[in-house]
Computed example of a mutant assay.
Amino acid sequence: MIRSMTGFASAKGERAPFTWGWELRSVNGKGLDLRLRVPDWLDGLETALRADLSKVLARGNVTLSLRLTRSDFAANAVLNPGLLTAALDALARIEAEAQMRGVDLAPSRASDLLCLRGMMEAGSEAEDYSALVSQLKAELRPLIAAFLEMRRAEGKALEKLLRGQLDQVVILVGEAATLAEARKSAMADTLRANLARVLDNIDGADPDRVAQELALIAVKADVTEELDRLRAHVEAARELLDNGGAVGRKLDFLMQEFNREANTLCSKSQNSDLTRVGLDLKAVIDQMREQVQNVE
């Protein structure tokens, strides 16, 4: 089964005196772009989270956010006034710049500042957050599982849509083959008339050479190879869907090949009905390309 690059999952947790909320979301991307927003004072957490995500994801712009708040502080903890002043100044500059550019930011909260590294200084010894980090690492596993389940559900819907579009391509290729076969007799009559016209109007023309040139024109107008390649591309796409996994890049390449053959079919059609089928093919292929952009 294929997976979509679109997904979302959230979760909440607590360990006194902390409470937190997770958000894991992704949209489509050419590669894997991980953006983690976690407190920097939780040593080793970001590295572990990034490693776990990299093991199970192949593509997508992925954002993992951890919003952590603390309900109280140790009795011996004191506020770091210098860091608070710097943080407030930076926050004021950011909000002023955002307002000038017409960007609305979410309201800032005191708890966001209190969770900055060094904002609260221990009066005697630093606090040990190893147990908190361990719990947060453990919570990532069910979060990822829920996230992947959504991507699989989205992928299932994508696969159904793509298979339906591939069936449309097969039908249109069949119509094109029928029209191309019916076109042969008309093309033969046209070529014979052209040959007679050339021989009647040009003295000393070599009939064999003229016939060869007209035959070459007929070969160039033949669309059999394009139709055969379209059928082969359909089978290749179906095989990729059957295999599942991270096949988005391969499907994207196949869509380019589909489009190339449809363009050639239109340019060689020399028949209004065949051109119509070629344009219908291009429309279906464009729809497939849009859907494939979201396949992992």
Rank of each mutant, 00 (worst) to 15 (best):
S4H: 04
F8T: 00
A16M: 07
W20E: 01
W22E: 01
L36M: 05
E46S: 07
T47V: 15
A48Y: 08
L49A: 05
S54E: 14
V56G: 08
L64E: 09
L68S: 07
N76G: 14
A77S: 15
N80D: 04
N80I: 04
G82L: 10
L83D: 06
A87K: 05
A87H: 02
A87Q: 04
L88M: 14
D89P: 03
A90Y: 02
R93P: 01
R93K: 03
E95Y: 15
D104R: 15
P107L: 00
R109L: 00
R109S: 03
A110D: 13
S111C: 11
L114F: 12
G118C: 12
M119D: 02
M120W: 03
A122L: 10
E127A: 14
V133I: 12
I144N: 08
A146D: 14
E149V: 12
M150W: 01
R152P: 07
A153S: 13
A157V: 14
E159Y: 04
K160L: 09
G164Q: 00
Q165H: 14
D167W: 06
D167V: 10
I171M: 07
V173G: 00
A182D: 10
T190E: 08
R192F: 12
R192C: 11
A196E: 15
L199W: 02
V210S: 01
A211D: 14
A211C: 10
A211M: 12
L216T: 09
I217L: 15
T224Y: 00
E226V: 04
L230M: 05
H233E: 07
E239Q: 12
L241Q: 06
D242E: 12
N243L: 12
G248Y: 07
K250I: 02
K250D: 14
M255V: 05
Q256Y: 05
F258V: 01
N259Q: 06
R260I: 08
A262K: 05
C266T: 10
S267L: 03
N271E: 04
D273S: 13
L274D: 00
D280G: 04
D280R: 05
L281D: 02
K282G: 03
E290T: 07
V292M: 03
N294P: 10
